[in-house]
Design a protein around this nucleic acid. Structure first.
Lengths: 140, 140
DNA sequence: CTAATAACAATAATTATTACTATATTTACA
DNA sequence: TGTAAATATAGTAATAATTATTGTTATTAG
């Protein structure tokens, strides 16, 4: 039994590169649509397989939303996310770390708390403005 | 057109009653299995419809886990949850509220933050103990 | 009791994701 | 370089979870 070696793949590089150069937090489907511009016949399975690979190897992060959708992010710096209830976009938050809440959680807990997953939600700026101008969902 | 009135339903009551009397945080499937003991031919669709109904009407809460599974909870008091990486159970945490993190998040944010969803994760007490006794997953 | 309407069971359809397999790429090394 | 071994891919099929549809049953108001 030889140790499996990871080989280079243009498709995987393309996925990674797209994620590193966008501020969006796209879903597997959106990534598929984007990478298809470069590799017109890449398959959705390849996208999913590589996303899993990249998550497993700590090269990207998977964000699981309240609504059940998964989004991906190549920004590995510790930061928090905001989910707009209106347009469902995920935005980065510029805020102080909140790791101290783990200590609060541990106070009366018997097991071991290793960390937390936190999402903030509400209405993003664009959707607020759109609402004022009678454009309910940020749709043009 | 008369105003739609919500009629009584034994099935819905049964779902609600089960949720109110358990400390577990069951999934739709687990609820289906349980309620079927009372209503052998209730359909899964009915379970899903009623769970949505109850969530919509604020009678129960939906917990969307990192792993994509949805769990339900009839305990409406403000409290936080712990997800065990080992056995995937959800446990209630006895801790101080952490609403102040919304203020931190709002500091440099243009939109409106309405709240946050936070899950703590780690290894629960039972799984830790099981590991010590060579019973990896808490399975008997 | 009866009509109107809501809730039901059963099933079909949809969506997101994963598994499979033959072919194509990549890598190591002659 | 050229070639063989190993891994990755495209395309397709399969699965799982959820949502929608349809005809039937239960509940309620009059």
């Amino acid at each position: 039994m030889t140790t499996a070696v990871t080989k280079f793949s243009r498709q995987r590089e393309s996925i990674k590169e797209y994620l590193m150069n966008t501020k969006e937090h796209p879903t597997a489907d959106a990534i598929y649509a984007k990478v298809r511009e470069t590799f017109p016949n890449i398959s959705l399975g390849t996208v999913y397989r590589n996303l899993h690979f990249l998550v497993e190897h700590g090269e990207i992060i998977k964000l699981s939303c309240m609504d059940g959708s998964d989004h991906f992010d190549a920004d590995l710096s510790p930061h928090h996310h905001f989910v707009c209830k209106c347009c469902s976009r995920i935005l980065d938050l510029d805020m102080e770390p909140i790791e101290h809440i783990n200590t609060l959680a541990n106070a009366h807990f018997k097991g071991r708390i290793e960390g937390n997953v936190t999402y903030f939600y509400g209405i993003c700026e664009e959707c607020s403005l759109a609402a004022e101008h009678d454009t309910p969902n940020g749709q043009e």
